[in-house]
Simulated scan of single mutants.
Amino acid sequence: MCNAIVIGGGQSGLAAAHALRTQGLRPVVLEAGAEPVGSWPHYYDSLTLFSPARFSAFPDVPFPGDPDHYPHRDEVVDYLRRYARTLDADIRTHHRVSTVTADNGAYTVHTEHGEALQTNILIAATGGFSQPHWPELPGLNKFAGTILHASDYRNPEPFAGQRVLVVGAGNSAVQIAVELAEHAHTTITSRTPLRYASPTLLGRDLHWWTATTRLDVLPLGPWLRTVPTTPVSDKGAYKAAIEAGNPDHRPLFEHLNTTEVTWSDGTREHIDAVILATGYRPDLTYLQPLGALDSTGSPRHRRGLSRTCPGLGYVGLEWQTSFSSATLRGVHRDAHYVVKQLVKAVRTHKHCCIPTPV
């Protein structure tokens, strides 16, 4: 019997493991990939964080380099590797979880290799970005050109000289579209207008303000998740490029066919590729046997604590508690809250097998 199991070894799983260690537990962390770095190695080459290094580090392990620089994707990967080595946790890579069952107050976690591990405390930390979201768009299934999600986009070279649509209105959509526009005829198209927010206010990074005012930790998730789009973090360069038409922005197209797009004004033109920067959804299908998910596959929870399954918690969900819940700068706060509540509940249960720290 494991005293705690964490499913997922990316930033959310590592944050959960750290929180469990502070409670005197030594969790087993099950990571499907080859190393505990989550999805970061698979993001596009030019990706940089939208928060400075000083606000993107986990407790006790600062980000290397200038604390005010914005870390690149590869810096984040290296940081997570280093952070994982600081944890006294049993991290098992190449361990993909297929399903979880429950019996008599204990969870059994089944892996694709046929292992079965039991625990009283289970944390699903595969995060809110494990499943690329492919929206239903008119004619997309008929389009014969290249279609890929932003999760599969790496750099603009394969699209040089092509006519490309980028669908979306968030940070990734704008960053990818502006990058592509230097190599391809690019349009960013979305249902909602593009909104911009400066990363600084009165000479201070916006994250300094949210940390200082503690806005970052307010439990506003249930309300903020109804906001249509998150503003694009922009010092002015992205907005200027789009207003100059490089790339241009248009309302979402009316229809696609095999080779063409039809715009709202009725004009049609040839299209070579469509890139969907349309976000992600959590993939928690392994919890389906527990009745922990609603009809859409979303977890039934309050601030990361399951509403239906005692001993089950979540870390890394978008808007789980606040707008920083699914980020490097905020995930550890949610992890410590969830772990503290789970451990307290299990230790007060008469069948508790969780050791109490001396």
Rank of each mutant, 00 (worst) to 15 (best):
W209H: 14
S198Y: 14
L215A: 10
P282Y: 10
I188T: 09
L218Q: 02
G203M: 11
R268G: 14
V274H: 06
W208E: 13
P231C: 08
I275M: 01
S198G: 06
G279Y: 03
D283Q: 14
T278R: 04
V174L: 01
S172M: 00
E260I: 06
A211K: 07
P156I: 01
Y238P: 07
L180D: 01
V261Q: 11
T229W: 08
P289T: 15
I275F: 04
A277H: 02
V261I: 12
L276S: 04
T189K: 05
L165H: 05
T187L: 08
P222R: 04
T226Y: 15
A240P: 04
L276D: 02
R250K: 12
A197R: 08
A277M: 03
P156L: 00
G221V: 04
P289E: 15
E254R: 10
E243P: 09
I242A: 03
N257Q: 09
G279Q: 00
V232R: 04
G170R: 00
V274A: 07
T258H: 15
V217T: 13
V167G: 03
D216W: 06
P199F: 07
G170S: 10
A197V: 14
P219C: 08
H185V: 02
V232H: 06
T267R: 15
T259N: 15
T200F: 15
L287K: 03
P251N: 13
G221M: 03
T259W: 11
W263Q: 12
W208P: 09
R195Q: 14
T213W: 09
P222D: 06
L224V: 09
S264L: 14
P247S: 03
P199D: 10
Q175S: 05
A177T: 04
H183S: 13
Q162Y: 01
G279P: 12
N257M: 11
R225D: 11
R191A: 04
V261A: 15
L256G: 01
G266V: 13
K239S: 11
